[in-house]
Design a protein around this nucleic acid. Structure first.
Lengths: 370, 370
DNA sequence: ACGCACAATAAAAACGTTTTTATTTTTCTT
DNA sequence: AAGAAAAATAAAAACGTTTTTATTGTGCGT
């Protein structure tokens, strides 16, 4: 025999050499060896198939628990064609000075992550810089099946991603809705109502020249807000001060600069509606520079995304919607959509809560005592 | 023959029925059929193996381009044991009122995402609520090989994750360093120096009672900052005002409340060092509430994480480090680490840039002319 | 007691790769 | 020009699953 090892010797030798071998991640084969059942039966048992007898199922589960078996995601993915990935498109802004841009994404991701907790799905983040990149990534995700579902925001009024995904019948949930009559899962804030309510509050406070610091007009929600803004005026029998609407990126810089420009006009606004906290901070910085005090010389109503307006000086009246809740709902909807649920019922529109921190009736005082 | 189809008929029939079949995602087999080479050769050619002849390689690449072939990640993953996933541990704070918490994560993820762009790696985000969860997730990632590499932040002075990952020789990069003498890839801000410089600036401005609004003392960087804070006093021949150091979560609320408490003390600080923008905003809100004006009644120096301090009223002096740059470096280091590079050289400490927006010498004026 | 349905499980095939081993083709030596 | 060595490619095996098909065993009716 010499140096040649019999099979038994070799096995013994290996068992001797690497006891670590026994601690190697257990696979379905390990379970098969342990329990004496075939790998097919093991798989069926673990997936809860009714064809396996309760007693064997129990034995298999016991062994799985004992060995700490966890199904290998790659194996499952390869066999089933599913990826067990939930993709999120995240806007990336690398420009210095725009660092606040997208801060709400931490909240959104938190919410989605919470919803996915305990499911088999991984949260995969795909960054994009330009809208076209987002479309390209979405298409790649669908074509190559890089994920089983997709979440994105920043919806345009005619959004190519939605068109494509609906057409491909790919599971997705958008934060925001487009203006095309598709049926698709989405979550949104009632932007029309929120702009209406903010504007109406200021009109009731006597204001007639209200500025709206808004997102760029290609975004669907920017249009929604203009709609609500206008409706508030119309319902009060007034003409909306549409000349005071500014659209742009929602950076602090934009908030500051557009406020400076607005106030330095011949016919300046007496009140400001800011669509997020970043622009609000910029607006307030501008007002301080101009020597105008909020609540004394001008009113400001804002939308609160990261709940920090309470700490502005003075605290400003906001419409607050915990964005993380939207994120959680996005995740929940995506799970249900991926489980096969139809999109029609996977729709929720959140109405933000008004937190009045100022009287916001300077317009009235300016025009005359009430 | 009747209804029976010959093979040729069937193929023709299928080609007729679903021309989409030809547009089915091409696999390596499709390429094999197209080019006439075996799948093994195709694989080697695509991976750039030197054993395949240039001419065949070229033919294979041409076919791959023509068909738009993209390697199936699941197949590769299963065979190679690699996952092509870069995992990031992201802290999640679901408590209302802490929405700002972790805003910098958008920046970090942006940076990482940019670094990963063009690589084969996917960015997978794992949310955690408590530190122990982060450890458990990290262990699961290693044990089940859920990812090929890991990035995390919020490093403790003795961080179980670092210990475990170093021990397992698993590729990772941390944002921040622990106080154990391990060799591991990491990126950090020079917190000791930053705190030293901020404090020294205030001491030079005549301040003797400086408060430090800091992270909780279990974080390594919180200790670094206390070290720098103390050194500034020592080098000036003074005793550090350690009784004015406050540690806590870095929320706006914490900034506000600790400032209120500090200022209402019998021996209040004449200046504040705030370790991030969130606490700074809270501190400024507190000062306004107390009727104290920054730059008039008290000095504030802060660390800038999302570059928004310029818009505070008044703008405060900050140490600014574009955090996205750190994120990008985290991603780059992880790629290199996953490619097998040794960790010793994958270390970079960033020194933030001072942006002096205030004289910060109120201490001098209060105490008397210099 | 003999097949027969049916239940339970085993065996085999497949997903798309990479890698190892085997085979064929080419080139070089003499 | 025959043979060996080297180069190029093909074939097969493997990764860990799920699913389809095949096999075995059991209880039943007649």
């Amino acid at each position: 025999m010499g140096n040649l090892l019999t099979v038994e010797d070799e096995e013994a030798g290996m068992a001797e050499e690497k006891p670590a071998g026994s601690r190697l991640t257990p696979t379905i084969k390990t379970l098969a060896a342990r329990t004496g059942y075939s790998i097919g039966t093991i798989s069926k048992a673990l997936r809860g198939s009714p064809v396996v007898t309760p007693s064997t199922r129990e034995a298999i589960f016991a062994a799985a628990r004992e060995l700490g078996y966890q199904a290998n995601a790659r194996g499952m993915a390869l066999r089933t064609g599913r990826t067990y990935q939930a993709a999120v498109l995240m806007p990336i802004t690398s420009a210095a000075g725009y660092e606040w841009d997208g801060v709400e994404y931490t909240q959104i991701l938190s919410g989605i992550s919470q919803a996915l907790e305990g499911s088999d799905y991984q949260l995969a983040v795909h960054g994009y810089r330009k809208f076209d990149d987002a479309c390209a990534i979405a298409r790649r995700i669908v074509d190559q099946r890089l994920a089983d579902g997709l979440i994105f925001s920043g919806v345009l009024s005619d959004d190519a991603r939605i068109t494509m995904l609906v057409e491909a019948d790919f599971p997705f949930v958008s934060l925001g809705r487009c203006r095309k009559p598709f049926v698709y899962a989405h979550v949104d804030i009632d932007n029309e109502w929120a702009a209406y309510a903010a504007t109406a509050r200021l009109i009731a406070g006597g204001h007639r020249r209200v500025a709206l610091i808004n997102a760029g007009p290609r975004y669907s929600y920017a249009l929604d807000r203009i709609d609500g803004f206008s409706r508030a005026f119309r319902e009060a029998g007034l003409t909306p001060s549409l000349d005071l609407v500014r659209g742009g990126d929602l950076s602090t810089r934009f908030g500051r600069e557009s406020t400076l420009a607005l106030v330095n006009q011949p016919a300046p606004p007496t009140a400001l509606v800011c669509v997020n906290e970043s622009t609000t901070l910029g607006a307030m910085s501008a007002l301080v520079s101009l020597g105008l005090a909020v609540g004394v010389d001008i009113d400001v109503v804002a939308y609160d995304d990261i709940n920090v307006s309470a700490y502005f000086s003075p605290p400003v009246t906001t419409f607050y919607q915990p964005i993380e809740v939207l994120g959680r709902r996005l995740g929940e909807f995506l799970l249900r959509r991926m489980a096969g649920e139809k999109p029609a019922q996977l729709v929720e529109i959140f109405r933000p809560e008004l937190i009045g921190r100022q009287p916001d009736n300077l317009g009235g005082r300016l025009i005359g005592p009430d």
